[in-house]
Amino acid sequence: MTHDTETVQMAHGSGGRLGRELVESVFSSALANNILNRLDDAACLEVQGRLAFTIDGHVVSPLFFPGGDIGRLSVTGTVNDLAVMGATPLYIALGVVIEEGLPLHTLKLITESMRATAGEAKVEVVTGDTKVVERGAADGVFITTSGIGLIPEGVSPSGRGARPGDAVILSGTLGDHGVAILSCRQGLEFDSMLKSDCAPLNSLVREMLAASVRVHAMRDPTRGGLAAALNEIAAASGVAIEIEEETLPVKPSVRAACELFGLDPLLLANEGKLVAFVPEDDAGSVLAAMRSHPLGAEAAIIGRVVDPAAGAGFSGPFRVFARTVLGGLRIIRMPVGEQLPRIC
């Protein structure tokens, strides 16, 4: 036994004994279930019905942040992508790229977090793969997850489903994740009680769909924030969206960070929020269902879908607007690139 058990080595990716050891001691022990335990080349699944299928790559610095870590993020990201399609998430496949030198202990913490989050979301990790790359070729660990979920009969939210007259409902406060990550960036550090909102949303979606199967569209506003999510839905559905900026739920500390660093809460990332487009008649019951769920306690109607032709005097390719304090409208564009803290 001459190998260093403390950190991940290149040999762990060799496919030999060390590789097997890594998989068994870190991954299959933590994520154990009947399907994964077979360690076959592929998982055999029996599913009947309409499937939703998605994939998402996760990179985050730092790997551990207030309220979450890359392990939790990698499960919630995929679960939420399935959930906003109305699907019940079932199975997850995992691809892990590890930078040589990563402490094994760190990897175990991340895997443990994946286990806990998968349990919370009631999904199983059924197959996976690990690779080790040389130091510097990755930043700690990169995790890709793919997932499948079953779409119940009669449910069909889609990004193209928003209709004029729909109420736009946001499930909670904006920007918690973005600001939590920012708070640990070198050179920008600050203290706040703020935690990332990182959470699986499938149980919230289940409650919403129980209140109304007529939820037209849903999206989780991750990177690019609410601005991107609204622009995507508006474009895909061929509608315009008008939001009331004053009704947007934003925590005071998030607002403070935005003031401090010149950021816009509309552009900050969220990892446990969704925005839903619901026919006006059903908005009340869906909102009530959301508010009775812990992840939707601060849900609010933030605006409505309008006919683009009636677009309040704006023409051109713009579809998302906010009403300003002076009663006018301003354009909310698709965000460009990364939001950088600014000073001047």
Partner: peptide, 16 residues
């Protein structure tokens, strides 16, 4: 002042 420029555009002051 750039911050004034931003505020005027963002809050629709010019428009109003």
């Amino acid at each position: 002042c750039g911050t004034h420029t931003m505020a005027i555009s963002r809050h629709g002051i010019r428009q109003a």
